[in-house]
Design a protein around this nucleic acid. Structure first.
Length: 457
RNA sequence: GGCUGGGUGGCAGAGUGGUAAUGCAGCGGAUUGCAAAUCCGCCUUUCAUCGGUUCAAAUCCGAUCCCAGCCUCCA
């Protein structure tokens, strides 16, 4: 496989440290509120990545954390007069529901920050002992000038970092760019006892601690949204490298942003799309399809048209699968994924290109009359779909889902009546029934083997 | 200002030197009682702009313009 590595700015062959245990760490959400569509792009992208990795290597350990201590969580908890765990558990639950709807498989480990406070203390102590961190006014800060490699990931010159910055530099910092590892908590704020007083972790140290705990000091792949390159990943890299004296990450992968109608989602614009809301009128599979329809590194523009196109495309694939529904695929058929599909996927996860190969397959499915060939086509489509996390439901389920108040019995009764009218050549009645169904967004299809229906999405 | 992605036909979206994949939408035809689905064909000399290199450029080089992101809240 080849990946584009943010650190080297180049696409290079992926060689894991241990092919029996490829290690992947992806930054998960801070669970303080409902997750929006942009929050779901990384889990979907890296879900596909890990599905492919698992097929290429003997073992994979995938960790995707939950950040359950953070000042935004504290604020929400204080406002609602509840413990932070109430907030974090509530939104973790919502997040998981969204992931399930989008067909995202659970990671091998889903560590939470609050379960790793002692590991965080150890990392901070190691940094202090190594001369890379210092205490000041109850804080522990990372000493940026102590690490010569700082800025290499995000290509920033530490000396110029704060030029033009819009923040006030805290007076206790030795250097302007130093960042917090541990900060003091007031009595009414959540906190943990530590060698430096009661407090809570800074933003970046938790990932250093959790990645090392679950995956080791040097990991193969670290992923996340592009906005995390700086400061989050730059700081993680500095901490981990200095705490362990070892290289932190071999391949950095970052996905592009999701815009909505070409604008960044923001509360002030009022265009924040929550997956929870999207799911009310779109299937998780269609949402997933949209998220995968653009190469993961490129920006993705979320529009109604994109969703519509995803539905149309899925109709096409499920239409082909429905045509092949009577075809039995033997268990021992072996790997049938088209070479072009596999090559595209292994080349930095080129999903759009890979998808094009599947459309070719769908056309073959619709034109072939060879049973032997259809068996292979169906297997190829389903196996390829497994890598993408698509096409795994029953085609009939796909076509009958998505409508409002679908009463299958009522529809079947109307269709039976229409069939009778057709047999009597009562075209007026037959068409009238079709119109009635069309109002309910039901499309009838008269096929060779009888009439079927689907929900117009 | 610095750094990072990206600008491809109506839309989406591949394509890193050899003459624009694929899908959607639209149009014409086949099929159908009529449709839908499906199939066939057409929309497709053009790749933000301007220069340059080359036998050959969407692809390489230079300059410019535009969009999005980051520059210590952020997937």
């Amino acid at each position: 496989m080849k990946f584009y590595n943010t650190e080297t700015k180049a696409k290079t062959e992926f060689v894991p440290i241990d092919s029996n245990n490829v290690t992947v760490y992806v930054c998960g959400p801070t669970v303080w509120n409902h997750a929006h569509i942009g929050n779901y792009r990384p889990p979907v992208v890296f879900d596909v990545l890990t599905r492919v990795l698992r097929s290429q290597f003997a073992g994979v350990t995938y960790a995707r954390n939950i950040t359950d201590i953070d000042d935004k969580i504290n604020k929400a908890a204080a406002e609602q007069g509840v413990d932070i765990s109430v907030i974090s558990e509530r939104y973790t639950e919502f997040y998981h529901q969204g992931l399930e709807a989008l067909g995202v498989l659970p990671p091998d480990v889903e560590p939470k920050v609050t379960d790793h406070i002692s590991e965080i203390h150890q990392k901070i102590q190691a940094l202090i002992d190594g001369g890379h961190a210092y205490e000041a006014e109850g804080h522990v800060l990372f000493d940026v000038p102590s690490y010569a490699g700082y800025g290499a990931l995000s290509r920033r010159d530490p000396d110029e970092l704060l030029a033009g910055a819009r923040i006030d530099v805290a007076s206790y910092k030795k250097s302007d760019g130093d960042f917090v590892l541990w900060k003091p908590s007031a009595d009414d704020q959540p906190g943990w006892d530590s060698p430096w007083g009661r407090g809570r972790p800074g933003w970046h140290i938790e990932c250093t601690a959790m990645a090392a705990t679950h995956l080791g000091e040097t990991i193969d792949i670290h992923g996340g949204g592009h906005d995390l390159v700086f400061p989050h990943h730059e700081n993680e890299r500095a901490q981990s490298t200095c705490a362990h004296g070892a290289k932190f990450v071999n391949y950095w992968m970052h996905n592009g942003f999701v815009n909505v109608n070409q604008e960044k989602m923001s509360k002030s614009i009022g265009n924040v799309l929550l997956v929870r809301d999207l799911l009310e009128h779109a299937s998780g599979e269609a949402i997933r399809y949209v998220l995968l329809s653009t190469h993961y590194r490129a920006p993705l523009d979320w529009t109604d048209e994109a969703l519509q196109q995803a539905n149309n495309s899925l109709d096409r694939f499920y239409g082909a699968l429905r045509k092949m529904s009577s075809i039995e695929v033997p268990d021992d058929i072996g790997d049938q994924k088209p070479q072009g599909f596999v090559d595209a996927m292994l080349d930095d996860l080129n999903v759009p290109k890979a998808m094009a190969e599947l459309f070719v397959l769908a056309k073959k499915a619709n034109t072939s009359d060879s049973n032997a060939e259809l068996v292979k086509i169906k297997a190829a489509l389903l196996q390829s779909g497994e890598w993408l996390g698509l096409f795994q439901q029953d085609p009939d389920a796909w076509f009958s889902s998505g409508g409002d108040n679908i009463d299958a019995e009522q529809i079947d009764a109307l269709i039976a009546e229409r069939s009778k009218a057709q047999a009597d050549k009562n075209w007026a009645r037959a068409d009238q029934i079709r119109d009635i169904l069309a109002e309910k967004k039901i499309v009838v299809e008269d096929g060779a083997s009888g009439t079927s229906w689907r929900v117009e999405k």
